[in-house]
Design a binder for these strands. Sequence first.
DNA 1: GCCGTTTTCGGCCCGACTGTTTTCAGTCG
Length: 567
Amino acid sequence: MSKNQEIADIFDKIADALEFKGDDSFRIGAYRKAARILREYPEDVEELWRKGEIQKIPGIGKGMAEKIEEYLKTGKMKKYEEAIEGIPQELLQLLEIPNLGPKTLNLVYTKLGVKNLSDLERVIETGQLAKLFGMGEKKVENIKKGIELYKQGRERIPIGVALPIVEEIISQLKKYTEKIEPAGSLRRMKETIGDIDILATGKNNIEIIDKFTTLPIVKEVLAKGDTKASVIVTTNNLQVDLRVVEPSSFGAALQYFTGSKAHNIKLRGLAKDKGLKISEYGVFKGEKKIAGKTEEEVYKLLGLIWIPPELREDRGEIEAALENKLPILVEEKDIKGDLHVHSKYSDGVETIEEIAISAKNLGYEYIGICDHSKTSKIAGGLDEDTLKRRNEEIDRINEKIRGIKVLKGMEVDILADGSLDYSDKILEELDFVIAAIHQGFKKNVTERIKRAIENPFVDIIAHPTGRLLSGREGYEVDIDEVIEYAGKFNVILEINCYPDRLDLNDVNILKAKKKNIKFSLGTDSHNIGMLKYIRFGIGIARRGWLTKEEILNTYKWEEMPLRRRKK
DNA sequence: GCCGTTTTCGGCCCGACTGTTTTCAGTCG
């Protein structure tokens, strides 16, 4: 775990403890904010400390800087020890239970001596909890439901899983609404989604909300009012929130429910400085509403140009918008081809010709076929003879089909000693080479990738961290070192678009961007239906502030800045 | 605890929903 992550976790725990103790809410907020920023910060906090620049990080002032320094020097933080002192070890975890907040947790601890989950369940069963001041039958019932949800576990799910659920819900509600759109982290194209936010407007609010809460997919209704309802759906116990607003507020509401929370807090602060007030209903000057129909007018009143949703994470986008220095982000229409697709030759489903036709139908100019190399036997890796035959077939297809160029790529294994799975002579004959770790995830991965980067015929490093959102941690790799080295050798890093990978992720993209690295988008498709995953890669690229100039796939094939051409 | 060409002190986003209250507190996003 990186030091940024470690310290962020400690700050979050301090915030939990302070919240439990009823400390000043702004101090708590300061710790949470610092934790979030640290977690996403593209520079290593230890390095910044050595340069005496910790306070350069926004949200880190004198106090936090001292605490970070103390931790880096001693491995301990006195403030943390003090904050958790006297609090039973398992207690603060219970803050994750929905409907059970810090106030109630403190109450059950001080009045009933609850120290962990089983204590809590016991005082619910015995009826002791319901007798406490301010509690009642329904509150207890809600906490009980919260415990159920907590036990089932509600992990964030990959955007690839969330999107079809949202589309399903929207298609069923569409006929009752005038406008209906996803908001929240889904609209910001975050790699994982915690809950789904949907925004709608229409003639009959009550009807829309009634239809929503009675959809077949709904397992439980958490809350239901005139403008808002929350439900749990059967898939993944996902929470879905629907808001219904007037058309004159749609833009303000879309802005508000798209978030992120940190982005909105900063925006509202900005409004306050100008004597304005923003809410989901609009921008207000005193009592008078002066904007709200569109997002553009909301941002404009604050002196900002419209900020793309993917940037709204309070990572400097508001400051950039104030100076009109937002990057022009890559868009779907800029993409001229997919650079990582498997064919039937290895473990893909379709023939190269079928893939080529699909790619042409998508409007692509080229398609990069990258089958597995010989060591990946399970994935049908190609020996040298088969590779030769495949390349000849690609030549024939390029003769036969006009309007699409099939590129001879390969996803070549990086072996245990850092060498590649084919000789340089074979690699040289290919149009481009993606090098990938597919075995030995814990064996010297950083060094092996660096050896691969040194090979002049390696153009791209595939899924550089190896993580899978559904579970696998990724290789034991020092990604900062890989980024540094790739920059030195002009090697491109892949943004693997497969929704369970999305690797590099946004934070690593930001790091690599700082080192002037270029990126390639590859869906890693194993069937043609997966070619559409390019949208997820574009989303992550946009979250990493990338412009089209920084992405290989926006260049014509002849003009692609590949390293082998710079020789 | 952070932050500042209106401030080094006094601010710090704003509202919905629920339940328990009798005007509001807690939780959530």
